[in-house]
Simulated scan of single mutants.
Amino acid sequence: MRPQIIVLYYSRNGGTQKLADAIATGITQAGGDALLRTVAAAGEPASARDLALEPDELGPCDGLVMGSPVRFGHMASALQQFWERTSSVWLKGQLQGKPAAVFTSGSSMHSGQESTLLAMGVPLLHHGMMLCGIPYTEPAIQQTQSGGSPYGASHVSHQQQTKLSEHEYQAAVALGKRVTYAATALKPLQQQGKL
């Protein structure tokens, strides 16, 4: 059975959504099913394109990739509030031993992408997930002049430019593949209760 990978994101101007799409491409290329899901901020409707995720829908996934625009070096409040509602998932250990990764977009090279990526990993670690990054053996990470980091995929959206650079796209696809390959390898161990 193909691994089911949730790509959970919040996007306000479209850059984070473009990364989500590239990650979904990588998931599909690696033999998985990408489930694109979003969250809505207070007072805003959810994405017109993708369904809003509820915490109880996390359990069946085989992996998770989460993305947010930079908000002062942290994830958007809509995602933070989502994780604050996941206690029942945490108590049951439903995400334990599953691979996860993170991605972000910001308006400039020094807007806080890396601190946002690191901060987004915290709730995933609390849930017992295994974080995947992008190794330096990935050429796009070595060659990028904009987004991309060993901590996760990223996009620099100079003046609200949502089009990904070629290296940003390649890094995001590579991240989607990496999580999918990890999910495929880890699922038998998880089913045996070894993770």
Rank of each mutant, 00 (worst) to 15 (best):
S146F: 12
S149F: 07
T144W: 00
A119S: 13
M109Q: 14
A140M: 09
L131Q: 14
E138K: 07
S149T: 10
S105L: 12
H126T: 06
F103E: 00
L131I: 15
T104S: 15
L125Y: 08
G121K: 02
M130N: 02
L118H: 07
C132V: 12
G148F: 09
P150T: 14
A140K: 07
T162F: 09
S154A: 14
G121N: 02
L118R: 03
H110Q: 10
I134V: 14
A119M: 10
Q159V: 12
M109N: 08
V102M: 05
K163F: 10
M129W: 02
Q142E: 10
Q159A: 15
L117T: 03
G121D: 11
S107P: 00
G147V: 08
S146D: 02
P99I: 06
S107N: 07
S146V: 01
S111M: 08
I141M: 07
A140H: 01
H110W: 11
S111R: 07
G148E: 08
H158Y: 09
G148Q: 10
C132S: 06
Q143K: 15
M130Q: 12
G152C: 01
I141E: 03
G112A: 04
Q142T: 11
P139D: 04
T104R: 00
Q160P: 00
T162S: 15
H126V: 10
Q160Y: 09
T144Y: 02
G121E: 04
Y136W: 05
I141T: 11
G147A: 14
E138A: 12
Q145A: 15
A119K: 08
G128V: 06
G121R: 01
Y136M: 11
S149I: 04
Q113G: 01
S154D: 03
S111K: 03
T104F: 03
A153R: 00
L125V: 04
L117Q: 04
S154V: 04
G133R: 06
P99S: 10
G133E: 13
H155R: 11
H155A: 15
H158S: 04
S146Y: 11
A153S: 05
P135T: 05
G112E: 14
P135M: 01
A140G: 13
E114L: 04
H158P: 00
S146W: 02
H127L: 12
C132K: 03
S108A: 03
Q160T: 13
P135N: 11
Q142L: 14
Y151K: 04
